[in-house]
Design a protein around this nucleic acid. Structure first.
Lengths: 192, 192
DNA sequence: CGCCTAGGTTAACGACCGCTAACGGCCCTG
DNA sequence: CAGGGCCGTTAGCGGTCGTTAACCTAGGCG
């Protein structure tokens, strides 16, 4: 394993707490003093680890987008040739991500506009590539449906899967299987 | 007609522009000067119409929640007795709302925590009642499914329908019918 | 031992922001 | 025509926030 670590480094602690706070109260609603306090240091001590508050948000959003895209690509390769299996795997992966990192999911489509231009463009590009993964496989499964409609449907299913932050989960397993069924049901209705 | 007006009053102008700006850059990311400039007056002139920035957000969120709930109740009454017709009507109504007032949909689940305690409780209560409308009718249609699961499904479909802000609509009619199909497909998969 | 680096601390600055104060013009009404 | 809301304006206050500066301490190492 390359990027996994047993004990989280200080940088990772900060990122994790910042993600939680940003998701709870919004980027502008959280002060650097609060982020520092959440990891036991106070205020400007954060600047030993990050260039600024913007840099934390940027690293979070770029990281999410990269992880989503990388995981998606791996799943497409693993189930190559069988579009139905690819789609099922993409759905499962997205559900895992949504349930494991609710805070990041929230940030992902909420605070994108707070980034500097370069970072925002990078994140947008990664997001777009991730969407293309889904669009390609869904188009294989529903050849009669136009590309624009498929794109809308993919975004809509993202909205469905990303709704997890709003609900008090009634058991991880049950939620997982329920979301899976709902997502498949939505796609199934595409060319009905 | 009681509340409709031909020419928008200044208050309504302000609310409309504030909604747009809040949705674009977040509540904390928009200054009162910007809101004023958007309606042609500048800065503190807003205080002739609202007690403060918080009051604008409060009125927006309470207004959305009330309109959603009122519209939902009306639809339940109109199609009384036929659960399938009620659900179809609720879905259509929610789609209309999502497509007509994207900015408000965005605010609705993004800036709730910026409200004063009393306002937040009111909005939460209205939201909960609206959800209950959906849960009741979906449970009638899927008697075998537990209440917690139905609630999750309803929230998930809200996420699906509210995904409209993210996409560049390819024609209002087409988007409307597409979202309708996806939502029905998701619910259909509930007890499969 | 002496020193450098890593990772903290507190103080303070400059910018911004929400809001109030004080003021003025327009228009309607008696 | 006098007066009073209504609806603006500008000036400025008080607080907060991101960031920098200056300083301190512990630990590894030649």
């Amino acid at each position: 394993m390359s990027t996994s670590a047993a004990a989280p480094t200080r940088r990772e602690q900060i990122l994790s707490e910042a993600a939680r706070l940003f998701a709870e109260r919004g980027f502008h609603g959280v002060g650097v003093d609060e982020i520092g306090a959440a990891v036991g240091i106070s205020g400007p001590g954060l600047y030993r680890h990050f260039a600024g508050k913007d840099a934390m948000l940027a690293e979070l959003l770029v990281g999410i987008s990269e992880r989503l895209l990388t995981g998606g690509r791996r799943r497409v390769e693993e189930a190559d040739g069988d579009p139905a299996a690819v789609l099922a795997s993409l759905i499962d992966g997205h559900i895992d991500f949504a349930l494991d990192d609710r805070a990041l999911i929230t940030l992902h489509d909420r605070e994108l506009d707070r980034l500097r231009d370069a970072d925002r463009k990078l994140v947008r590009q990664l997001q777009r590539q991730y969407v293309e993964l889904w669009v390609a496989v869904v188009r294989e499964l529903h050849p009669g449906v136009g590309e624009a409609e498929v794109r809308v449907a993919v975004h809509a299913v993202f909205g469905l899967l990303n709704s997890t932050p709003h609900l008090g989960t009634p058991g991880r397993e049950a939620t997982e299987s329920l979301l899976r069924r709902l997502a498949h049901g939505a796609f199934r209705a595409l060319s009905a």
